[in-house]
């Protein structure tokens, strides 16, 4: 899990994402069990506003430069702005607010 966690923390630090998924897809490939070589990243951030796809991917590749050079064999990238993401999937539904649970004062 080390490489995956490392990718996640670097992307959070650099892109302040509204939504981030880092998925280890290595099991789909011809590598030993438990390998961390093939990843898929879904990254949603307002920092991609007005940026072409190639520049978004280059920005991610630059942040993960060391990992790409030494550890990661394949990196599938799906990059969206907040607005594009909402347009695609409507965003994930918001979780409901807390109503107090067992600490709720009944008057």
């Amino acid at each position: 899990m080390n490489i995956q966690i490392n990718i996640e923390s670097k992307l959070i630090e650099h892109f302040d994402p509204a939504h981030l998924e880092v998925i280890n897809e290595s099991f789909q490939h011809n590598v030993p069990a438990g390998a961390e070589t093939h990843f898929k990243v879904v990254l949603v951030t307002p920092k991609f506003d007005g940026k072409r796809l190639i520049n978004r991917h280059r920005a991610v590749n630059a942040v993960l430069k060391e990992e790409l050079a030494e550890q990661i064999h394949a990196l599938a990238l799906h990059t969206y702005t907040d607005i594009e993401w909402e347009g695609l999937y409507g965003g994930a539904p918001s979780s409901p607010a807390c109503r107090g649970g067992s600490k709720r004062k009944v008057s």
Partner: peptide
């Protein structure tokens, strides 16, 4: 190319991108 992986599509002398793009 300043692009770490393959495939790479080049059109009219410029890198368009990799598979996802």
């Amino acid at each position: 190319a300043d692009w770490p992986t393959f495939p790479q599509l080049w059109v009219d002398g410029e890198l368009v991108g990799g598979c996802d793009i």
